[in-house]
């Protein structure tokens, strides 16, 4: 199974304590200076939508956002262009990209901290990964091996329980802290 269009969410630790208008300002600055590896195109404001994407940074190859889906804020990285390499490479690329932006935001907004014990991944493509038992059976070992091997921690819990109509994915809780900063620096 080839996993493409990986979307990861790194959750904010505790309540969000940051002015989202200022986050938008930062995103605009990143577009102006093309500060991330992707071609950055625009900033979108969805703060008015309850439990929605909140503020987003739209890119050509991927989107970023401080997303509030399900009422939990987190930094998302949503890979739109297909990538070469192995499944591990693609999962690592998404997590690394998200972690990098988390680190940048933590520096810019000292009150903002991201959890080191949990992340969510999604395969944002129903043709590649329909949300069913077959996909889970094929995918779960890939994810477990990735977390232990590439991320170097054990997962304490993997929750694949989602509305069957949702995209396939899981929330992964970790037994020890992940070093986002080291990951971002890779």
């Amino acid at each position: 199974m080839e996993l493409q269009h990986v979307r990861v969410k790194l959750f904010v630790d505790g309540e969000l304590d940051v002015d989202l208008e200022k986050v938008m300002e930062t995103f605009h600055g990143w577009v102006a200076n093309q500060s991330l590896p992707e071609l950055l195109i625009d900033v979108v404001d969805y703060r008015h939508v309850p439990h929605g994407p909140s503020v987003m940074l739209i890119g050509h190859e991927a989107d970023y956002g401080l997303d509030n889906t399900d009422g939990r804020y987190g930094l998302i990285y949503n890979r739109k262009s297909a990538l070469d390499g192995t499944n591990d490479d693609r999962l690592a690329q998404a997590i690394r990209s998200a972690a990098k932006v988390c680190t940048l935001l933590e520096v810019e907004f000292p009150s903002l901290k991201f959890s080191l014990r949990e992340f969510e991944f999604t395969i944002n493509d129903r043709a590649i990964a329909p949300n069913n038992a077959e996909t889970k059976a094929a995918c779960e070992p890939i994810i477990t091996a990735f977390v232990q091997g590439r991320l170097g921690v054990a997962s304490s819990n993997s929750n694949y329980d989602r509305d069957p109509r949702s995209t396939f994915g899981a929330t992964i809780s970790l037994e020890s802290d992940l070093d986002w900063a080291a990951l971002a620096a890779q």
Partner: peptide, 22 residues
Amino acid sequence: EEYSDGIAHVTTRQDIQLHFIH
């Protein structure tokens, strides 16, 4: 979810619009 920015928009002519589509 898959092609756009995670928002569907209802227009003043009862269409639905999706943005940022390739």
